[in-house]
Write a protein that binds this DNA or RNA. Structure first.
Lengths: 231, 231
DNA sequence: CGCTTGAATAAGTCATACCTTTGCGCGAAG
DNA sequence: CTTCGCGCAAAGGTATGACTTATTCAAGCG
């Protein structure tokens, strides 16, 4: 899935460094410098830089060098950019942005899922809702997280919208990050778990209205908690 | 802004060809073949392919070649992928997806904008709402389109969410495509124009509730019309 | 003081050689 | 006849040197 080979390694070094602000906006890199710093050939440097260019994070210019573009121009929807920002100094801002995005998208996805979900999807959602209840009560955060991610992924996919479906990994990253950085209670809130059951039931029953409302309560609550924690 | 140079040209040929299905999923390309077909060197081919790889549209494998990955794995949020799909055979599906996305995001953005918009933003929105009314009455579709794009762009930016803001170009592409392919009435619907004024007023007044509701009516209406036209 | 021109610089492109991985066929063993 | 494994060949991956092109900056000229 990742970019392989030496360009991939270069990218894995440069990307986070830029996203994390260690290489600040406006910095100018040179191909030759990167060759030496990472002990790789021009070919490799150029390919890595091309990728960063396609993410609009850098802009190569003749006679000048490779300039780091302002953050506001980056492809903020690129999964790599999101991951790098989540890993670095920008984590808080990135989580806030993603939180708002979830509030916008997930309720809509739930409503669509209530209409379009397959029978298998509905079954899986019900099962996961039960699992969430159990693992929450047992305070088994790790398993809870896995099921939570799966739950939201299925809702997104079942919406039938490819773009929503592709937010699966991003939402997963948010949930994972939240757990890893202890931005959530040690035991999942019973109310939140209850809401997941409601979403599952609503989708099973084909009740778009209710699915949307319950999902909105979930993600809005998550955003509130996030903002409260980050302040 | 675009990828420059020969790799950019290659990309501008290959990308649309893949996105448009002319090079179907599962096809296997070889570097040498591309070199000959486009009369460029290995370097150039590799850089273009690397970019396609970072969009998850192709996967190079040793001893096999460069295979075109299934559409479901592409980076559907990449601006280039969106543009290519809008230009090709996938236009209908892409427009539907983007329509749903707009329904999810733009109302949320409007609500946030009502809280976060700067005074300049509010002024501009008011002015644009007036312009929309005038150009709609005059059936000046070209100017209307430009102002419509600007209007939605400002709302997205004023939301204060960087991810929402970055959907500006995408929304612009949708609106442009809709006009160009005559998927909208010859003269903008007065009701839609009226709703834009409502959004502007609500944002100026800081009424998040109303801004969100009005915007939702706009984008939901656009989606309905789109679906009606495409069937 | 401004305009032109030229030289220096760094990216862009090409051709080539060589390395590394891996699919597949062939042959030997069971 | 089947199966296992070994080795070859094919394709991408990396390195390098030569050359091209665009662009900045400054020196020199009007």
């Amino acid at each position: 899935m990742e970019i392989q080979g030496l360009p991939g390694r270069l990218l894995a070094d440069l990307g986070p460094a830029i996203a994390g602000g260690e290489i600040p906006e406006g910095s100018v890199l040179r191909t030759e410098e990167l060759e030496e710093r990472f002990r790789v050939s021009r070919t490799v440097v150029r390919e890595a830089v091309r990728i960063l260019e396609s993410m609009r994070m850098v802009a190569p210019k003749r006679r000048v060098g490779i300039t780091v573009r302002p953050k506001s121009e980056w492809d903020v929807f690129d999964p790599l950019v999101i991951r790098w920002r989540l890993a670095g100094a920008d984590r808080a801002a990135q989580l806030r942005s993603l939180g708002s995005l979830r509030v916008a998208v997930e309720p809509a996805a739930a409503a669509l899922a209530a209409v379009h979900a397959s029978d298998d999807d509905r079954r899986e959602l019900s099962a996961l809702a039960v699992e969430l209840t159990v693992t929450a009560r047992a305070a088994d955060l790790e398993t809870f997280l896995a099921h939570d991610i799966a739950f939201h992924a299925i809702v997104l996919r079942a919406s039938g919208n490819e773009m929503f479906a592709h937010l699966k990994d991003t939402v997963g990253a948010v949930l994972t990050g939240r757990t890893e950085h202890h931005l959530m209670p040690h035991q999942p809130r019973p109310y939140a778990v209850q809401l997941h059951r409601e979403v599952a039931e609503a989708i099973c029953a084909g009740d778009a209205e209710l699915a949307e409302r319950s999902m909105r309560t979930i993600v809005a609550g998550a955003l509130d908690e996030l903002n409260a924690t980050l302040d």
